[in-house]
C-alpha cells in the first residue's frame, strides 16, 4: 500500500484566527518564547501500491475537496504503508 500524507494550511495572506487563539493560550501557559502558531489539517489517504495515477488523483482530490484554493495551500508526501 501507498500512504499519502496531505497537509493543508492557510495561505500567509489569510489571518489564522484559530492559530492566534491557540498562541494566546500557550502564552498563558507560561511559554513566552513562542512567536507564532499556525493551525492546519492533516489527512491520510491509502492507495494500492501499483496505482499509476496516484499523484494525478491526489492533486485533484486536494484541489477539489481537501483544500480551498482561495484561502489554503497543500503539500503531500507519498510513503510506503503496510
Amino acid at each position: 500500500m501507498k500512504l499519502v500524507k496531505v497537509y493543508v494550511t492557510l495561505k500567509d495572506s489569510v489571518l489564522d484566527a484559530q492559530g492566534e487563539a491557540i498562541k494566546s493560550a500557550i502564552n498563558t501557559m507560561g511559554y513566552d518564547k513562542i512567536s507564532d502558531v499556525h493551525m492546519g489539517k492533516y489527512f491520510e489517504l491509502k492507495f494500492a501500491s501499483d496505482y499509476q495515477e496516484l499523484e494525478n488523483d491526489v492533486d485533484k482530490i486536494c484541489d477539489d475537496l481537501l483544500a480551498n484554493p482561495n484561502i489554503e495551500t497543500y503539500r503531500y508526501e507519498i510513503t510506503e504503508a503496510e
Partner: peptide, 17 residues
C-alpha cells in the same frame, strides 16, 4: 455558494474567536 465557486472568495473563522 463560495465553495462551489458560484461566488468568489471564502468564509472563514471570525477574527475574534
Amino acid at each position: 455558494l463560495t465553495e462551489l465557486g458560484l461566488l468568489p472568495g471564502a468564509l472563514i473563522q471570525n477574527e475574534k474567536s
